[in-house]
Design a protein around this nucleic acid. Structure first.
Ligand SMILES: [Mn+2]
Ligand SMILES: [Mn+2]
Ligand SMILES: [Zn+2]
Ligand SMILES: [Zn+2]
Lengths: 142, 142
DNA sequence: TTCGTAATTGCGAATAATTGCAACTACATT
DNA sequence: AATGTAGTTGCAATTATTCGCAATTACGAA
């Protein structure tokens, strides 16, 4: 079963209805390159290649739902840029420079300890597959 | 020297001009209780108690500047709620449930290792004093 | 199949946040 | 103290996102 069907099956299991709009949005998200992300606006554009009949409000609502269900991750790449990706976008984190905005991908294995700690101490299951951390990049430290 | 003067001195050292607007905004931010945060809108309201002559755009721009300079932290408390606090708001993290929106404060000592790793491996100085992590809270796990 | 109904969508309006630009002002220099 | 100027602000316009609600539709039950 591919990534798209996987997501759709999960949604069915949770009694969500599979509308053409949702299918197109999920497909757009899953069809990007492994290490790519899309903004809500970009997803909307890609969906409209197939049919102009998907409203931008529906894109926003569907993305909120997919994030809430844990099927898609919402990533803050600094101030204005918010992007989305499915779980097939492998585990890593984004180091975002708060000065120049540069984004560097980094290994996220070190977060495993954090996840275990948060669960054992607070019974909280943290999403650590794909997060952003802010700070100052090597360049901006002079 | 108190928190407010500290911030103002730092700004002066970086050639930023100290306008009445900026002073009021910094004061509003620093005058909250130790464990409190304010939204941009709330800061605007508090500033207007003193004078109605501060535009909301100036509040947004000043906050962006303070965050960029590392003097204030911007915290995402889930989707719509973004709050700000100065550094006197002690080190901890926010565990935000993506299902019910509940926010739990947690110890952040465990992030020290993460910070060291990111610096040694990527020369990135991460801001880990005050971050949010998303996931599922104990309650929403059934 | 057809039907009933709650979930979902589209649309337009409301709200939040950002931006361009002319006017203003903090502050270094004289 | 007066001046010059680059940094900052206010305002209005723009853009991004959310919301209310009536119309539509997915899908379980008949
Ligand atoms: Mn990524
Ligand atoms: Mn806090
Ligand atoms: Zn940088
Ligand atoms: Zn919860």
């Amino acid at each position: 079963m591919n990534d798209i069907d996987q997501i759709i099956e999960t949604l069915r299991g949770k009694q969500f209805r599979i509308t053409p709009q949702r299918e197109l949005i999920i497909r757009a998200l899953a069809d990007v390159d492994e290490d790519d992300h899309l903004t809500a606006e970009e997803i909307h554009k890609r969906v409209q290649v197939h049919t102009s009949a998907v409203n931008i409000a529906t894109v926003y609502r569907t993305l909120d739902m997919l994030v809430e269900e844990g099927l898609v991750s919402r990533i803050d790449l600094g101030g204005d840029k918010e992007v989305f990706a499915t779980v097939h976008h492998g585990m890593h984190m984004h180091l975002v420079c708060r000065q120049c905005g540069h984004v560097l991908d980094a290994d996220a294995q070190i977060l495993r300890d954090v996840g275990q700690y948060l669960f054992s101490e607070y019974e909280f299951v943290a999403d650590l597959e794909h997060i952003s951390l802010f700070g100052i990049c090597a360049n901006c430290q002079q």
